[in-house]
Design a protein around this nucleic acid. Sequence first.
DNA 1: TTGTTTATTTGTCCTAGACAAACCACCTGT
DNA 2: ACAGGTGGTTTGTCTAGGACAAATAAACAA
Lengths: 300, 300
Amino acid sequence: MNSPGFNIAAVERDTGLSKDVLRMWERRYGFPVPERDANGERCYPADQVDRLRLIKRLMDQGHRPGKLMAASPEALAELAPRRPQATARCLPEDTAELDALVALIKAHDAAGYQQAMQQRLARQGLLRFVQDTVAPLTIHVGEAWEDGRVAVFEEHLYTELTKRLLRQVIASLPPGTRRPRVLLTSLPDELHVLGLLMAEALFTLEGAQCIPLGTQVPLVDIARAAEAHRADIVGLSFSAAFPARQIPGLLSQLRAQIPPSTTLWAGGRGVTRLAAQDGVRLIDTLDDAIAALRDWRPTI
Amino acid sequence: MNSPGFNIAAVERDTGLSKDVLRMWERRYGFPVPERDANGERCYPADQVDRLRLIKRLMDQGHRPGKLMAASPEALAELAPRRPQATARCLPEDTAELDALVALIKAHDAAGYQQAMQQRLARQGLLRFVQDTVAPLTIHVGEAWEDGRVAVFEEHLYTELTKRLLRQVIASLPPGTRRPRVLLTSLPDELHVLGLLMAEALFTLEGAQCIPLGTQVPLVDIARAAEAHRADIVGLSFSAAFPARQIPGLLSQLRAQIPPSTTLWAGGRGVTRLAAQDGVRLIDTLDDAIAALRDWRPTI
DNA sequence: TTGTTTATTTGTCCTAGACAAACCACCTGT
DNA sequence: ACAGGTGGTTTGTCTAGGACAAATAAACAA
């Protein structure tokens, strides 16, 4: 068990904190203080990387770095599960059911999870399944991940299995043929795709024609795709992790590049706190997405 | 049509060239030379970004930056479609069939593409479908993209539709129950998933039990997942775009973190030029992957 | 209490230098 | 002619510290 330590690039990959930030924190707060290798380069021991990951999690929850750096390790651990009013959104019995599904993931029982989800789908029907199971479950898992109750790889497994399920369901629907044609995608740095899949499932159910481009499509290429597919609507998804400050600028850039007759929608946790913007419809919830779809009328 | 230009972070996102590299090239080769905004920060015009993307593509093909920077734009364009022995891998009639599939994508005919692929699947059976259709088609599309014959969004559509197809096929197979248990995933910065899905399809067909974690899982979490799922094999995928020089270090780090009884496999275009390494099996082709699976014996 | 101004915090960008690993070209010995 | 070593060049990544604007918190006014 040699512990050669991680170089700064490895820490950036593992924590999501940029090299600039890592160096700046060291300069400003005196943490992390990595050792140095023979070349004088930073060499982070594993325990500091672990602590950095915890700090990153807490920051994503809204804590500020200055406080976190000053806090003792114990104080940090105390801070973790603090969550104001989050779980109050669901009824208690629903929470229990969601917890049961999360428990399957935490038991690494992929088959059991898939079976349970299939049962729920059959019982609830697609519309309610997406709205009452997949959507709250995704939030639930996200929160559990933020609190450290669910490991990163468990969250990945959840995402992967759920993606499959949704794609399978979508494939089993009669493909939408009516307008509007909806182009669904996300920008670079945004890799959360579950929201897009939920929207696609609901839109396809409504008979609309969806063009799924997957995630991380550069702005210019979204515009080109919109034109090539003669899309009526371009739907973008922004997760809570997406740097919110960049969103308005990106949206107006895209707005300028697509034809005026094409509607631009932006949805996901990342846009809920955003101010309204000309030429862009912000979608807060899945209900809102369906409502917006029904509102749509050809502009020509 | 204002063209405010891209800041250095946007260019990093869009080209995959790090900020350090962009600044270094400017210093050394005199390209790119972005304008400066009011704060003295770099502001890359769109045409320079386009050229950088082309350069990145050519570098992934093995060209060296020094030459590319010196070359005139025309020389660069000349260089692009030059492809030594690539398309010679397939028989001519196969190439024609692949071209027909690509044509469907370029015509943005998602339904037609899916139907054509389903037909091929039915005709060839899963094993040959993956080996003789999906794998060469993916290479074909990748090359067409590198040469600029296929747009980015068309490549995204291809990937998304093919992902769905493969996942659907995998779901329709009886889930593997026998050992080995194979954990399939990729590291952060690696988002190509088609190779993993092809492997999963073939492994599942062989009766092995696959645990798909999706892409971009941090090293530590792969190790934790391997332990939690008691994986016999950890299979990683590296695309050609992944920084090859980092791979050996990453593999040996992961090797140190998983139990000795767990086998480590690395596959994908990114590892074909790599030197052999202790404790890691490099998988060159899908055939090789199947052979490796059949070779596997419990270590205890 | 609410709105506005000032102060602090925080991330990102900047320049410019150093160096190791990878690569190429040349030279040598078989 | 060709395998193998050797030295020079190319190339990416790291380092240090400085600067500044956007976001947030704090102080103050109405």
